[in-house]
């Protein structure tokens, strides 16, 4: 057994919340730069330039790149030989979110009850996904998720007979219906298979992959490419004002599924595609 103090988890999560909001990843920056070189809409090019400038200011001044600093979605990979000491694991994570958001001047965007809608004031609780894995380490990924893009995400239980064509249609429909709302250029996360909730989680997990890194499965990688081309042929463009850059990437994750089902989930992420990780 290896001991990890809860306080260390708290400190790590607090730091990751801030880094994720201040520092846009190199993967996203490179993708935006490359898109700018190919964009033919002048307004679109200018918008992509503004996004790069924005990321630079955020990083240099340690301020959030977007005012919507998101729901703190936290992925934990907990080694089965780890023993968390001095506190409750989830409370340690939530305390980290609390500290990160309050001390980092990040916006508090969480209401404690979906119906009576009172702000919790410290951006807690986090949404926490935990996997128990072999080993004695704890891997923490913090992925703050904005409301604008989350709201345009969708899930559908297709009939198996609808196959790949059905999946493609649903992805395109979702991107088109989203239009300007998720702040394009977007990253399109697609989860195929599993059950209703598994498909949604796959879609979200696919957004953690470095932007533009293809799926290791060549068939899926080809489908990602094909979908990216189709998404960019919609003309939606940067901010939905017209152009060739509607998405920076399409990421697909799959899982085995029931003979009767073909679930497909599409989780849209904005250009503020934030995720930072640490291993303790």
């Amino acid at each position: 057994m290896r001991n990890i103090p809860a306080s260390e988890i708290t400190g790590t999560v607090a730091g990751l919340c801030q880094q994720a909001n201040y520092q846009l990843g190199e993967d996203v920056l490179t993708a935006i730069k490359n898109a700018g070189e190919q964009e033919i809409s002048l307004t679109g090019r200018d918008i992509l330039q503004q996004l790069l400038k924005n990321a630079e200011i955020a990083r240099e001044e340690s301020v959030p790149m977007c005012q919507d600093t998101g729901f703190a979605v936290v992925f934990l990979e907990l080694g089965q030989e780890v023993h968390v000491t001095g506190g409750d694991l989830y409370e340690a994570v939530n305390e980290g979110v609390r500290r990160g958001y309050v001390e980092g001047y990040l916006r508090k965007s969480i209401v404690g009850d979906p119906l009576n809608r009172k702000n919790t004031g410290d951006n807690t609780p986090a949404v926490i996904h935990t996997r128990i894995v072999p080993g004695d380490k704890l891997r923490i990924v913090v992925a703050p998720k904005g409301g604008g893009s989350e709201n345009m995400s969708a899930i559908k239980m297709l009939k198996p007979a609808e196959g790949v064509a059905g999946v493609k249609n649903f992805v395109l429909e979702t991107v088109k219906a989203a239009g300007p709302n998720p702040c394009p250029p977007v990253v399109v996360g697609v989860g195929i298979g599993g059950t209703f909730e598994k498909a949604a989680l796959l879609a979200k997990e696919s957004l953690l992959r470095p932007v533009g890194r293809p799926s290791p499965d060549p068939v899926l990688a080809a489908l990602e490419n094909e979908l990216l081309e189709a998404v960019n042929a919609t003309g939606i463009g940067p901010q939905g004002l017209g152009g060739l850059t509607t998405a920076l990437a399409v990421h697909i994750e799959t899982y085995p599924c029931h003979i009767a089902s073909l679930p497909v989930a599409v989780n849209l992420n904005c250009h503020a595609s934030r995720h930072k990780e640490a291993i303790i």
């Binding site: 918008i47 503004q50 996004l51 400038k53 924005n54 200011i57 955020a58 001044e61 301020v63 959030p64 790149m65 977007c66 005012q67 919507d68 904005g146 604008g148 300007p180 702040c183 901010q239 004002l241 904005c270 250009h271 503020a272």
Partner: peptide
Amino acid sequence: FAAVGGAAALISR
């Protein structure tokens, strides 16, 4: 008018 969504640090200037 549209402002650039997500260009929040730039806009604050």
